[in-house]
Design a protein around this nucleic acid. Structure first.
Lengths: 218, 218
DNA sequence: GGACGCGTCCCCCGGCCGGGGGAGAGCGGG
DNA sequence: CCCGCTCTCCCCCGGCCGGGGGACGCGTCC
């Protein structure tokens, strides 16, 4: 079995941190919490200093994005595996998390023994995804991984437009896209108008159809 | 919670059958083994007669193929969900199993409580895949699912609804769909409302996204 | 410095869309 | 024979969406 898995917890809710500590307390031989942080900045300092095996990270970190933090951490400390802990059981989130370099995506309803098992697996290089989500994803997966990261340039799409398009393909409304990208709805509409012109379509559903046909999505 | 999940066990090893029976014996209120079979022929007879919620199936059935049996069973008794139980933790097998209409793929190292939980999930329509496998699959994915059928996942769409959906996926507006099918626009809207309910989405773009994800377009 | 592209945000307006009610016809099974 | 399902069509209404105008700051390139 070897040494216990060294874990850093990151969540902006004190309660969650305490809960996780309690949950993991009974498994001292297998998992050891070596630090906890409430903000991205704290987390970055801790992780670079402690170089843990796993970082357990909430997707929403107050105003900050857990995804951005994940990208930062995996870039800076590649041997530390980032596992998201979230309440959102949406496949879309999982894909974004994995694309951001995450080593796992678990739902907050896991219990202690399962969490410990997952942490051990992830420390050994496995990628762990909540089983219910993973089941659905197994069927979806092929399509989404077929394209590369940002091949939107085929139609002269800008970076931002590609991002908007990928969310559009995910079936999100203008409002939802705005929320996801932290933008005004008007800005999203503005990008969409440009998108429709470039894709030579009249509305969002046709845009989705074209994007999928030409593989412009993510 | 409702009635216990009715399960039929299929394996060519007497020992495995006995083991499963013993494992599930302690959960009589949640899972009930209503039959067991050692061959594909036996299994087919049992399943068509008993119409269980779940069929727990070994991938290797002596000389016979569990996959073929799965295809047969899902074709003949669509409401019964087939879950494979295997020792092979190879992604390839999982994809083949899902393509054959399976509702799940678990490894023989599951313990009682987890197996029971999985059986309940699968009976409720979830697709369950062993977490370690599923994690890998999420990243590696594969090319196997491209445009394949998925018997278990038809959302009870009527003929007409499917036609409307396929045009919807093509990016057509209500008016265009009406013209193509020689219908009133109101009729199209009526079909769409039913479609949104069945796909559990709020609008056309989300419907397109779901349809493409789940491959229920024609 | 000026032109240009990009990203952000704002206004107005008309039309399409989604949700809530229906209704009537046909068809098959209990 | 009636029930349930499917398919067809209707009205109203509120909200979302798409298209037309912009504006401003920020970089880059010449």
């Amino acid at each position: 079995m070897g040494a216990p898995v060294r874990v850093v917890l990151v969540d902006d809710h004190e309660m969650i941190l305490a809960g996780l500590q309690a949950m993991l307390a009974g498994f001292a031989g297998r998992v050891r919490v070596v630090g906890q942080a409430g903000t991205g900045e704290e987390a970055t300092r801790l992780v670079t200093a402690l170089r843990p095996d796993v970082v357990l990270l909430d997707v929403r970190l107050g105003p900050e994005s857990g995804l951005d933090l994940c990208r930062l951490l995996t870039g800076r400390v590649p041997e530390a595996r980032v596992v998201f802990l979230s309440v959102y059981d949406d496949e879309q989130y999982v894909f974004e998390a994995l694309r951001a370099g995450a080593g796992g995506y678990l739902l907050k309803r896991v219990d202690g023994p399962e969490l410990v098992r997952r942490l051990e697996e992830v420390a050994q290089g496995e990628t762990v995804v909540d089983p219910t989500l993973a089941g659905r994803m197994a069927v979806t997966a092929a399509r989404l991984t077929r394209g590369e990261f940002w091949p939107g340039a085929n139609r002269g799409l800008t970076q931002r437009e590609s991002e908007v398009l990928s969310l559009l393909v995910g079936g999100l409304s203008n409002k939802a896209i705005a929320a996801r990208l932290v933008l005004s709805e008007e800005t999203v509409k503005s990008h969409l108008r440009a998108l429709y012109r470039k894709l030579e379509v009249a509305d969002r559903s046709a845009a989705i159809a074209v994007a999928l046909r030409e593989g412009l999505f993510r």
